[in-house]
Amino acid sequence: MTTALQPRLPSHPVLRLRLAPLGGLPRPIDGAWWPRSYDLLAELPPLLAGLPPAWGHINSVTVNGAEWSATPGRMLVSNQVVRLRRILAASAPHTVVLLAPGRGRWDLLVVPPNTTEEAAEPLLASATGGHV
């Protein structure tokens, strides 16, 4: 009997996040995030863990869109409480807003999870001004 070795899957998938460079003029979008699903409870902890330390503790997250799964009003991420809100605004239907008291606000474009890599790449690049 021959046993075929299966390739190991990464224990933690790579975070698909691109951020615009710091400094310069204020931007309407600070980067792009390409989650693997619309399950905020599963997707939010890796996103928050992958943000720059300079952004500080994000204590409020607002997602825009009906696609996101129902969420509680808050959740515990890395032993810190994060408030969650889901809104339906026509002005920016695919965004997430991150707030850190005393540090700032960051708006990220959300690339829909079912987007192909070929279609996602230009969206990620445009949200960061072409920076990788």
Results as ranks from 00 to 15, higher is better:
S78W: 00
A100F: 05
L109V: 07
L88G: 09
P35V: 02
S91K: 12
G23I: 02
A66E: 12
P35E: 03
G73W: 06
L5G: 10
A120M: 08
A119P: 03
L108N: 05
L15E: 01
H12G: 00
M75Y: 01
L51E: 00
R85Q: 13
L99T: 04
L19G: 00
V82S: 05
P112G: 04
A32I: 04
P122Q: 08
A54K: 07
R105C: 11
L76F: 01
A54N: 00
S11G: 15
G129I: 00
W106I: 03
W68S: 09
L17P: 00
L109G: 02
A20E: 04
V96M: 14
Y38F: 14
Y38T: 10
R74Y: 14
S11N: 12
V111R: 10
L47T: 08
I29T: 15
A92N: 13
N64F: 08
S126L: 13
L40M: 10
R16T: 09
W55H: 10
V97Y: 08
L17N: 01
A100I: 06
P28M: 07
L99Y: 07
A20V: 05
L84C: 08
V81M: 13
V96S: 02
P26M: 08
L98W: 03
L5E: 13
L108K: 06
P101G: 01
E121M: 12
L98T: 06
A66G: 09
P35A: 06
N59E: 13
G129K: 13
A119G: 06
G102T: 04
L124G: 05
P26Q: 11
A127E: 13
I58H: 06
N114S: 13
L15Q: 01
P45K: 01
P101M: 11
T3D: 13
L15P: 01
R105E: 14
G23F: 11
A89C: 08
L51M: 02
I29M: 12
T3V: 15
L76C: 04
V14D: 14
N59G: 13
S78G: 06
V81R: 11
P45R: 02
P101E: 06
G31D: 05
P35D: 03
P46V: 03
L40E: 04
N114D: 15
N59A: 14
G56W: 08
G50C: 04
T128R: 09
P52L: 11
A4G: 07
G65V: 09
V77S: 10
R16W: 02
L99F: 07
T95Q: 14
A127N: 07
A70E: 14
N114G: 14
T62S: 10
P26N: 06
R86P: 03
H131Q: 12
G56Y: 04
T95H: 10
L15G: 01
I87C: 08
R36G: 15
G24F: 02
P10T: 08
V96K: 03
P112A: 07
L9H: 13
W33P: 00
P52Q: 05
G102V: 04
L99P: 00
I87Y: 09
S78V: 07
A100E: 03
P46T: 02
A120N: 11
M75P: 00
A20G: 03
L124Q: 08
L40N: 04
R18F: 09
V110C: 12
L47F: 05
V110D: 02
A32T: 05
A54Q: 11
L22I: 03
S91P: 00
S91A: 14
